[in-house]
Nucleic acid binder design. Structure first.
Lengths: 346, 346
DNA sequence: TAACAACGGGAATGCGCTTTCCCAGTGGCT
DNA sequence: AGCCACTGGGAAAGCGCATTCCCGTTGTTA
């Protein structure tokens, strides 16, 4: 990485480095037209590309935004990533990407790496876990984030506050009303169905999943329906598939009224649907099914999924912009319930 | 971003900055245990986080990898991104992300930004366009990449070489055998179907699309089938949908033997399928359909898509690793044809 | 015991840039 | 004519770190 330097450009143009710097990057002072032209010509002939590291060191501003996701290939996260990337580009920032599989220890490492790079803000997406075994790592993550904020960093949090973070200075949360939407969703579905109800949830302690489970139960209660039984599985497509296999067996062994299955997210719902299909069961004929998130790439799936629509890209944008502006206080996105064929609607 | 500095840590520990540097980053020389302990304690108490910019400046190595994709939310690119991210993490690098919508001008800008940041390598994914209006921008992109390579950068290219790049030094291409796979795919499908055949292609000049179209035509010829007619549309889900609407109209207006539709990629195929369905046509009953890529998130789609399976994540890994090692010469991935229900198989 | 190698620590330099400060020249004003 | 404000350019001081020398100690060997 041995590109030519400002000093070389300056020498070739016959000016001082200070002058070269002033013309090549719009400083407050603008050198005369003739000189500027000479410098620009020299820069072009040498193929000069300013060293952003050196500039960052000199100006103490990097133009970097760190993004932390569980898995960039997961459509939930990649949709958010697009929003983050859009906002970053709009504000002339570059995004640094880190993936962590949701492991608090990895997230801590990612925050440290971003802090070392002096990223101006960090956007952290992905559900936090309150599970016991993660407790220690969560505390360390929170400490790392707090340190980052004390040093002037700003962090954008998607979903719910980071477990263990008490300070609010520097944090900008985009609140996703998981519980409220889940409640509305379950209420709407509950009005049309008698049950029994089943929730395919993620691991206990995963905040997003827990919030949605709680909301669903309340929504069912609102509609005067019995509480749902809960099946837990990993928070992804394959987790949904496992749960779906189990549910299919249950349906075969204990035939009864058509069950209604709420999956904690769309991706799990797709897994459930695949498992039911593999077991000769059809949605919505043999079981109603609802998801959560309304992932864009899954909208062509049939039967179309009843779900809670979240403006994921917008969420990413808001989280990013919130850290760049001085917006005080959390932003709350709306979201809405979308009824489709998988629960018999449409 | 005013974190504490090495000098502060050194002062607090009562040692020189040189010593502090040596203990905090494994240098060749390791200070004595007692001193090391003091330094580490001082660093911890100050919450010291080394400034990666300064380190980069001093060592002239940044540990950064730039990734250029059309759209991070597109599952094709996000799968590749996962591979890149994996490889980067394995090699202790961070990835910088840029999205460009495939616009050569934006890609040039992204390369320049990565060069400024002194990224050690750049991975560029996404089809190049040979279309006339992009010609000038393509030349500039190639020039920017060449300059980057001359300065010691290494670039990993996914798919086909960048248009206009003549040098090979610094470039590491992961060749995707689009034409061969398309030919195999069309040959296999052609054996079971009489036609007529239709190709839903991307815009003319998009290299990946053109390669696949050519391969399909040759595969049909291999099987002794007539050439396919070509419908062009934007290279995404909605483009596929548009084309699907047109094709559905054609089928309605000119009923005849069941047509076979090859989409230039899976995402377009999904769009085609949605359009056919909206028009009361069913796959594979009223039309056979094949895609390309075998996107993971689309595998639960029904009818399951006949397609060419590409190890996208592996492709991302190889492109990244290729730039980091001194692997000479291009890597070629295999890929395979996967026959499923959408063409009547399975 | 003398000479020397090995070791462990610090001073100083430089990475490539921005920016303050300084200085000479110019024009406007009384 | 004399003074001053201003302009446009350069010298130099960092930004935070790694690293090369250099030097005083200690341990080793003949």
């Amino acid at each position: 990485m041995a590109a030519s330097t400002l000093a070389e450009v300056a020498k070739l143009a016959g000016v001082s480095p200070a002058t070269a710097s002033r013309v090549l990057n719009g400083s407050a002072r603008t050198p005369g037209a003739g000189i500027a032209e000479r410098v620009r010509a020299a820069a072009a002939s040498l193929g000069y590309v300013a060293n952003a590291q050196a500039q960052a060191l000199a100006t103490s501003s990097t133009g970097l935004i760190g993004l932390i996701v569980h898995d960039i290939a997961d459509p939930y996260f990649s949709a958010i990533a697009r929003g983050v990337q859009d906002a970053a580009r709009e504000r002339r920032r570059m995004v640094l990407l880190a993936t962590t599989d949701g492991t608090p220890a990895d997230e801590k490492a990612a925050v440290a790496a971003f802090a070392a790079r002096r990223a101006e803000s960090i956007v952290i997406a992905g559900s936090r876990s309150t599970h016991g075994e993660d407790a220690a790592a969560n505390i360390e993550l929170a400490a790392e984030l707090d340190r980052y904020c004390r040093n002037g960093g700003r962090v954008g949090v998607v979903g719910q506050p980071v477990v263990g973070v008490t300070e609010t200075a520097g944090y900008h949360t985009v609140v996703v009303p998981n519980e409220r939407l889940a409640r509305e969703l379950a209420g709407a579905v509950g009005r049309d169905h008698e049950g029994p109800f089943i929730i395919v949830a993620g691991p206990q302690g995963l905040v997003t999943s827990d919030d949605r489970v709680r909301g669903i139960q309340r929504g069912l209660a609102d509609a005067g329906r019995p509480a749902a039984t809960i099946v837990r599985a990993p928070f992804g497509r394959n987790g949904g598939f496992e749960a779906g296999v189990e549910i299919a067996r249950g349906i075969r062994e204990n035939p009864g009224p058509r069950p209604v299955i709420f999956a904690a997210n769309d991706v799990m719902a797709i897994g459930v649907a695949a498992a039911l299909r593999d077991n000769g069961l059809r949605v919505p004929r043999d079981a109603a099914l609802a998801g959560f998130d309304d992932i864009e790439w899954l909208r062509d799936f049939r039967p179309a999924l009843t779900t809670a629509t979240l403006p994921l890209e917008e969420i990413g944008r808001l989280a990013t912009l919130g850290t760049l502006n001085d917006d005080a206080g959390p932003a709350t996105i709306a979201g809405s319930v979308t009824m489709r064929r998988s629960t018999g609607a449409g």
